[in-house]
């Protein structure tokens, strides 16, 4: 075959943009994390001091671990509640339950709504003074609740809001996977008299491996970079007593909001990014090993 170099023309723009704005920043985050730097002045090499400050047990470290704890708490909710719910919804859409087209349309709908509007809807429902729930409680003669202002409740409400807003994507991925299952196997199982439980657990579920791996990877990344919804619900400090503070919000306060801590440190901010990078890497490796997948199927 004739040498054809035309591919260079097609690839170069994408390669430059992607490398400059996606790959180099991740590499530089690792580099910065070993320096003390406020973004303007000279950079000072400090070795692992930023990581020491982040993980070593000081005040910053307590804030970080509280936030990371929330990320992990949320991740556990993903594995125990959200993913099973997504599989359940995907299945009832798959077996074409009555009204399934309408139900699919409505379950996925919140996914296309901006998080700032989701946050606004949450305020409409949970606002202590003018929220819908409190006005209902008041009419029924009960006392009002602080809802999101109550640190014991806020995390649970946050999970409910996320379920409402974000369940659609994973649900549709599972649903697409179910539609790929060989119809003759399904028909055979039905003719053999499988009931709904048997059909789900013995025929459908074992074939969901690839989508389970995909959805868990996507949800893990989402869980560890959680920002928008807690920011809307609890403000930049992550709610009362930091009850819905997440690592990405700690990062944002430190990296871009010098006003919150009185200083901006790119080095320290980067050490948070690098730590998250490593955690994402480890968790997705574990997921892949557990699900024994040889390749990610995106």
């Amino acid at each position: 075959m004739k040498k054809n170099r035309a591919y260079l023309g097609f690839i170069t723009p994408g390669f430059i943009l992607y490398t400059l704005f996606m790959i180099i920043p991740i590499i530089f985050a690792m580099y910065y994390s070993f320096f003390e730097w406020n973004g303007i002045g000279p950079m000072k090499f400090v070795g692992f001091a930023n990581f020491q400050k982040l993980l070593g047990g000081g005040r910053m470290s307590r804030i970080f671990f509280n936030a990371l704890g929330n990320n992990i708490k949320y991740l556990i909710c993903v594995l125990l509640i959200i993913t099973p719910l997504q599989i359940f919804f995907a299945y009832i859409l798959f077996i074409r339950i009555r009204g399934h087209r309408y139900i699919q349309f409505m379950l996925f709908l919140p996914y296309v709504i901006s998080t700032s509007i989701v946050g606004f809807f949450a305020l409409m429902v949970f606002h202590p003074n003018i929220g819908l729930l409190n006005s209902i409680l008041e009419k029924l003669g009960f006392s009002k609740s602080a809802w999101l202002g109550n640190p014991d409740l806020s995390f649970k409400l946050f999970v409910i809001v996320v379920i409402w807003a974000c369940i659609g994507n994973g649900m549709m991925i599972f649903n697409a996977n179910m539609k790929e299952i060989d119809e003759s196997i399904l028909e055979a199982s039905i003719i053999d008299g499988c009931n709904e439980h048997q059909k789900f657990f013995y025929v459908v579920f074992p074939q969901l491996q690839s989508s389970i791996s995909t959805v868990i990877t996507l949800s893990t990344i989402y869980a560890l970079t959680m920002f928008d919804i807690p920011f809307m619900l609890g403000g930049v400090q992550g709610g009362v007593n930091n009850s819905i503070d997440f690592v990405n919000m700690v990062f944002y306060r430190y990296a871009f909001g010098g006003t919150y801590f009185g200083e901006t440190s790119l080095g320290f901010g980067s050490s948070i990014s690098v730590t998250m990078f490593i955690i994402i890497l480890v968790i997705s490796l574990i997921t892949r090993i557990i699900l024994r997948k040889r390749e990610m199927r995106f």
């Binding site: 704005f21 996606m22 180099i24 920043p25 991740i26 530089f28 985050a29 910065y32 990344i221 970079t225 920002f227 990405n248 990296a255 790119l266 901010g269 980067s270 990014s273 998250m276 990078f277 994402i280």
Partner: peptide, 8 residues
């Protein structure tokens, strides 16, 4: 995700 490299 792009957030990891957002500072650089």
């Amino acid at each position: 995700p792009i957030q990891l490299g957002i500072l650089p």
